[in-house]
Design a protein around this nucleic acid. Structure first.
Length: 422
RNA sequence: GUGGGUGUAGCUCAGUUGGUUAGAGCGCCGGACUGUGGCUCCGGAGGCCGCGGGUUCAAGUCCCGUUACCCACCCCA
């Protein structure tokens, strides 16, 4: 058989898994302080949840979804992102009754059928938050701040992160702007690549992302949405910035920041970090005031962010931040010869029952080798049990740091170990 | 979907203009006077040289194909 994990997936071995758990713990602690509660939604949904929410024309829906039929013929899709599911669950369970609000966070794997590269996997992990029920700009600033504070809490140096913000407008001003850009593209067709010319009909705003030098130069002169926002959107955007400024959150306005999911309205943002290769966004998100209605629910404003585990870890590694690896055991019980095997086995269990992380040899290693194991595990204490000690009902306790050895009664070993550990 | 790079021990890699038993470091196991770690020294185990063809007296080393991984485009976390 093929013993390899599927393309675009990876086993998270202990070193990485530890970092994963650390990132999760930091998120749980920090998000709780901002009033967010956990929510777990299914890893797959009815395909419609994503096609309607994310948008038929987006890359994600058009070519990156893991869609399959179950045995009853239902079309299901492995979630490519988390927001659609959370909003669907919010609607299904009426988590945000009229005039109410909710703050939720989630963590788990997402799936997109893409060509893998640095910082991009087919199964990748995200942590995200969704703040539903408020259209106030202060919430936008709070969510953005939370994202920044999270990375800071993990230890990503501030100078290696850049926060970008922009406004996408809403149903009142974006359609008109799209037409304006489409017209601009048609008017400058001679200076643009074929792909961008096609974009005039499909998704004009994408032309701003084109890496082609000619296109970039041409699009630099195109009208910017920021200058054509309706009064309400302009006011909202200005208010978001005022709140960010009040908290001293550094950001760069990026008129060309265009997110690839159709549900975004008004505020969008992204945090880029150094050391990741070409996929440099470690987190991003935005407001989606129309999404709930798209699912047939009541008008419910909302916004949120998602951040990627893999990319965050890359950012941390490149910045030289290491996840601390705790000692794997507090005490190692060494066996001098086979005559005391049963006693050692029993002592280890007694220590564990007493709340102490104890380890022993299960491979018939020599005493010397057992000490090497203890050293490798990082245990502070080694208890040596041999015929001599056993006859006296004692064990030799060795402090691995000071090398001091004392004899203690087996019955009080746990107490002695605890005293040594401090 | 498109393009480029790479594929030799568990890991990181060397392997000369193709030439006889394929190497190093790290890791792992064992030992250095009889019941003891981290340093040092000695020894040992471990390799279908990604896979399949071809060229050649001879291929890890050249050619073709294939596959896997990596990086980039695209897009996103």
């Amino acid at each position: 058989m093929n013993a390899r994990a599927p393309k675009g997936t990876a086993d998270m071995l202990p070193g990485v898994a530890r970092a994963w758990e650390h990132m999760t713990r930091v998120a749980q602690d920090l998000f709780a302080r901002y009033g967010y509660e956990p929510i777990y939604t299914p890893l797959f949904e009815h395909t419609e949840v994503f096609t309607r929410g994310i948008g038929e024309a987006t890359d994600i829906v058009a070519k990156e979804m893991y869609t399959f039929e179950d045995k009853a013929g239902r079309s299901l899709t492995l979630r490519p992102e988390g927001t659609a599911s959370v909003v669907r669950a919010t609607l299904e369970h009426t988590l945000v009754p009229q005039g109410s609000s909710a703050k939720l966070y989630y963590a788990g794997p997402m799936f997109r059928y893409e060509r893998p590269q640095k910082g991009r996997m087919r199964q990748f992990w995200q942590i995200g938050v969704e703040a539903l029920g408020s259209a106030e700009a202060s919430v936008d600033a709070e969510v953005i701040t939370l994202l920044v504070r999270y990375f800071e809490a993990l230890g990503v140096p501030g100078e290696r992160m850049t926060l970008l913000v922009n406004s996408m407008g809403d149903e009142a001003c974006r359609p008109a702007y799209r037409d304006t850009v489409a017209a601009f593209i048609r008017g400058h067709a001679a200076d643009l690549c074929d792909e961008c010319k096609r974009r005039a009909d499909t998704n004009p705003l994408r032309a701003f992302d084109c890496k082609n030098p000619g296109c970039a130069a041409t699009m630099a002169d195109a009208p910017v949405l920021r200058d054509e926002l309706c009064d309400e959107c302009a006011a909202h955007y200005a208010a978001v910035k005022v709140h960010l400024d009040a908290l001293g959150i550094a950001y760069i306005e990026e008129p060309k920041l265009v997110r690839g999911l159709d549900y975004y309205t008004r505020t969008v943002f992204e945090i880029q970090a150094e050391g990741l290769g070409s996929q440099n966004a470690i987190g991003g998100g935005g407001r989606y005031d129309r999404l709930m209605q798209e699912y047939g629910g009541p008008a419910t404003p909302g916004l949120g962010f998602a951040l990627g585990f893999e990319r965050t870890l890359l950012a941390l590694e490149s910045a030289g931040v290491e996840t601390p690896a705790p000692a794997r055991a507090d005490v190692y019980v060494a066996r001098v010869d086979d005559s005391v095997s049963e006693a050692v086995f029993g002592l280890v269990q007694a220590l564990r029952d007493d709340g102490i992380a104890a380890e022993m040899d299960h491979q018939a290693r020599s005493l010397k080798s057992q000490f090497k194991q203890a050293d490798r595990l990082g245990t502070r204490v080694v208890l040596v049990l041999g015929p001599d000690e056993f006859a006296a009902g004692e064990v030799t306790l060795r402090d691995m740091n000071t090398k001091e050895e004392t004899r203690v009664e087996i019955a009080t070993a746990a107490e002695a170990v605890r005293a040594t550990l401090g």
